[in-house]
Design a protein around this nucleic acid. Structure first.
Length: 840
RNA sequence: GCCCCCGUGGCGGAAUUGGUAGACGCGCUCGACUCAAAAUCGAGUUCCGCAAGGAGUGCCGGUUCGACUCCGGCCGGGGGCACCA
């Protein structure tokens, strides 16, 4: 009498599909909507356990919302552009499109076997011209709105993948994919003006109260708002037409602590000065060579070159400071120039000590320390301004405001805000991406491809025999007449960063007309996404870009949605034991078992091919069925933390699935016969009723807060309570309810059990039971009795018993009397229905 | 370096606003069933102790009648950012 997932899974999946159970209808008939989305996968080949965990969580929520009367949109698609397809093309001589589509086919069928309640009718793949053509149209919309521009810029060049990387894709100075040290190159690139939205993107974070604090904080830091002041130093002698030097500082209060000024090696003034100064030119060249890896920067010496030029202090015309070119000043932050106040900045201090510059103290923690020299550490804390003329005696904040006020009044500077966030470079020198719909004409410049010529379709006949972008070599595709003057012109051969593809796919899911990216009204009926679930690795890149894209669409009037993701949940990874041989080579569990030599059992780590600790979900589903796998993905570990895969764990889940089935099957066999003994309303029945209703409330609350591990525990408890209860109508009701409560998690078993119990329709369509508030409260409570805060006894009292009664009962306890040792309590604390604490 | 999070049994983890620490699961032990095994069922399982009892949520201190929970300081682990002026 076992539950056989092999037949049941396929059967019910077919039933759901035939009935279109999970198709979202835009006609909602007054029902509230719930848009539940998991981050769509990159079709890398086969699904992995991380996918299974991610999609199971979303699925439980989607099914739960349906059962609660929501019209649910729960779609799935493919983030199908990207470099692995090109790598496969080069290595396996297969076209990226073919490789990608094959992977999609495999992964789709693997996913279907897990029984996810997905609306497959809305499936999309970003590599489909049907999708990226609309993306090209949106790109042109943004272009026309002035949110896209082209600029020569120094880029992060990955010499292995031969492509440009976004700042976000450079990790510790290395390409995020290739791991190769990144080089600096100048290229003409397309940029999206995300910095236009810096303030909005930052402020918007405050409205995202259903996002993890961690992610909001990471985005906040990434946007990096700094308040400060820009101001100009006059140059004592003009340099190639430059009469002044503009700097940015967050500490205008330390202006009298200035002892030098410094510019970036690629600052125009530095370059101008280098014209007639070979030593300086050599220094600048040396700075450019420096590596960009974190390790190199960490150890890199702070180096400067005294240009001999001097700048005039803005508050004292008789005071000049030396002007350095310094390797640690960045051209693309602030103004590319700083002033150094070594007393209040550690890096400035090290620089000043190295070059023998003065180190005045202008902030002291207390007035007594005003004259103390600065030691090895700059003082960056709060305090009183000293040695600073009219600022003396002010606190830091007041002094900052005062200097800004004065600079603005006198016209040499102004308060300002500087952002860390840079514009988003979207050009990629790759084939397998959405072509940028622009034609370059020698006479007209960049010209947008006319709308009626969209999509600009990727040519299929390309060769990957040479490194670099095959589009550049494909003359038949590349060379086209200029749309404006019909003269000879070339298509843009760069393609869009794949993060563009994922910046709006959730809108296309909500609305997919043929002739437009989406229908405004229809998309607005589904958006924002109520719950978005995915890996924390996308905390900055994808989520920030998608927020930007949504706001950009709002600005140009295409979509009236401010924030695309109302709720965000970042789930933990799936980990597994690792094994290594004596030489440190990673071994699969099977290899480890068969290995002749000593095997080191390593740490539990994220499943990865390189560590050979992956577990392919498919054979596991073959063996245990979809429900056991789903149950395991939800059990034990809180969803935001890592989940360790284990054979024992999956077996435990399998046992529970069978146990649940036995409960239902036995009940079905007994089938509605009348019960002897333990008559209606017995205390045993009442206890089970209460347990049931408490479980209904708890499971619902726990699913809603995505605490699946707790919901799982609730169901275990209910199952145990039912098993221990004698047959009765309460028990029969409880079994049926248990099946419904478990349905979002183990949907195939639920259908099978539901059918066996003669339930109407599908378990998937069953209404979520309502918890009876009267049954949520017990009529007897256990009271803890403490003496001096230490637990001495527990006693049972009717709910709502008066304080005096509880106190009396406590004092009557033998154990309490013993603990009191004859003393009389001088204070009694009573928390009704909870505890009595006797203080002696 | 800066910012953030987390430290609870053998293990994963529970514990509304401070109010019976260890729910639930895994593992383990003993027992039942079985020729035997698997499956299943029952009992037990924080530590010390035969027990009464005592100790206990990384460590030290504080607030409180009462602290896993709040505060201060340390130690350990993880994550993010980083020549950002």
């Amino acid at each position: 009498m076992r539950f056989n997932p092999l037949t049941a899974d396929a059967h019910w999946q077919k039933v759901w599909e035939e009935r279109g159970s999970f198709r979202a209808s835009d006609e909602r008939g007054g029902r509230p909507k719930a848009y539940i989305l998991e981050m769509f996968p990159y079709p890398s080949g086969r699904i992995h356990m991380g996918h299974v965990r991610n999609y199971t969580m979303g699925d439980v929520l989607a099914r739960y919302r349906r059962m609660n009367g929501f019209e649910v949109l729960h779609p799935m698609g493919w983030d199908a552009f990207g470099m692995p397809a090109e790598n496969a093309a080069m290595e396996k001589k297969v076209h990226p499109g073919e490789w990608t589509r094959r992977n999609i086919g495999t992964m789709r069928s693997q996913m279907k076997r897990l029984g996810f309640a997905l609306d497959w009718s809305r499936e999309l793949a970003t590599c489909d011209p049907d999708y990226y053509g609309h993306e090209q149209a949106l790109f042109l919309d943004l272009y026309e709105a002035g949110l896209v521009y082209r600029k020569q810029s120094e880029v992060n060049w990955d010499p292995v993948d031969m492509t440009v990387l976004a700042n976000e894709q450079v990790i510790d100075g290395r390409g995020w994919r290739s791991g190769a040290p990144v080089e600096r190159r100048k290229l003409s690139q397309w940029f999206l003006k995300i910095t236009d939205f810096a303030e909005e993107l930052l402020d918007g974070l405050d409205t995202l109260d259903r996002w993890p604090d961690k992610v909001r904080l990471m985005q906040e830091n990434w946007i990096g708002k700094s308040r400060g002041m820009r101001f100009r130093f006059a140059l004592a002698e003009p340099v190639a037409g430059h009469e002044s030097l503009e700097v940015f500082t967050t500490r205008p209060d330390t202006i009298f602590g200035a002892s030098f000024a410094a510019v970036a090696p690629d600052h125009p003034i530095a370059l101008a000065l280098a014209e007639g100064n070979e030593a300086l030119a050599a220094f600048i060249a040396e700075c450019k060579q420096g590596g960009t890896t974190a390790a190199e920067l960490e150890t890199a010496e702070k180096k400067g070159f005294d240009t001999g030029a001097r700048v005039v202090h803005p508050l004292d015309a008789a005071w000049t400071l030396p002007l350095y070119v310094a390797n640690f000043v960045l051209m693309d932050y602030g103004t590319g120039a700083i002033f150094g106040a070594p007393g209040q900045d550690q890096r400035d201090l090290e620089f000043a000590r190295k070059y023998g510059l003065p180190v005045p103290r202008v902030v002291a923690p207390t007035i007594e320390e005003a004259a103390d020299p600065v030691g090895d550490e700059a003082y960056t804390g709060p305090g009183i301004i000293v040695n600073s003329r009219f600022l003396d005696g002010m606190d830091v904040e007041t002094a900052i405001a005062e200097v800004i006020r004065r600079a603005e009044a006198e016209g040499w500077g102004q308060g300002t805000i500087v952002w860390r966030l840079r514009d988003w470079g979207v050009s990629r020198q790759r084939y397998w991406g959405a072509p940028i719909p622009i034609v370059h004409c020698a006479a007209c410049g960049p010209v947008p491809v006319p709308r009626d010529q969209l999509p600009v379709v990727l040519p299929e006949d390309v060769s990957f025999a040479l490194p670099g972008n095959p589009l550049e070599r494909h003359t038949g595709w590349r060379d086209v007449p200029c749309p404006q003057c019909q003269g000879p012109a070339r298509r843009e051969t760069d393609t869009l960063d794949t993060f563009v593809d994922s910046s709006w796919y959730f809108i296309r899911f909500a609305s997919q007309p043929a002739g437009a990216p989406f229908d405004k009204a229809e998309a607005e009926r589904w958006l924002p996404i109520d719950q978005y679930i995915g890996g924390v690795e996308h905390a900055i890149l994808h989520l920030l870009y998608a927020r930007f894209w949504t706001r950009a669409l709002k600005r140009i009037g295409r979509l009236d949605v401010a924030e695309p993701f109302k709720g965000l949940f970042t789930q933990g990874m799936v980990t597994h034991l690792t094994f290594q041989d004596e030489a440190g080579r990673w071994l699969t569990p099977e290899e480890a078992a068969a290995h002749p030599g000593p095997v080191r059992t390593g740490r539990v780590e994220k499943m990865s091919k390189s560590k050979k600790n992956t577990v392919d979900p498919e054979p596991i589903v073959d063996q245990y069925g979809a429900d056991a796998v789903r149950w395991f993905m939800l059990s034990d570990s809180p969803p935001e933390r890592d989940l360790e895969w284990s054979e024992a764990g999956i077996q435990g889940s399998w046992r529970f699935v069978q146990r649940l089935w036995r409960l239902a099957a036995e009940e079905a066999e007994r089938g509605g016969s009348t019960w002897l003994g333990g008559g209606e309303g017995s205390s045993e029945e009442k206890a089970l009723d209460r347990k049931l209703h408490q479980t209904i409330a708890a499971v619902g609350a726990n699913i809603e807060s995505l605490a699946f591990n707790k919901a799982v525990a609730n169901l275990y408890e209910l199952a145990t309570a039912i098993e221990k209860a004698p047959p009765s109508s309460s028990r029969s009701k409880a079994v049926r309810a248990l099946v419904v409560l478990a349905a979002p998690m183990v949907p195939h078993l639920a259908e099978e059990a539901w059918a066996a119990l003669g339930g109407e329709g599908l378990a998937a369509d069953a209404a979520w039971p309502e918890a009876d508030p009267a049954l949520l409260v017990a009529d007897e409570v256990t009271i803890a009795v403490q003496v001096n805060g230490k637990l001495r006894d527990t006693l049972t009292a009717p709910k709502g018993a008066p304080r005096e009664a509880l106190e009396e009962m406590a004092l009557a306890s033998e154990k309490v009397v013993r603990s009191l040792e004859g003393k009389t309590p001088r204070k009694v604390i009573v928390v009704p229905d909870r505890l009595v604490n006797l203080v002696a």
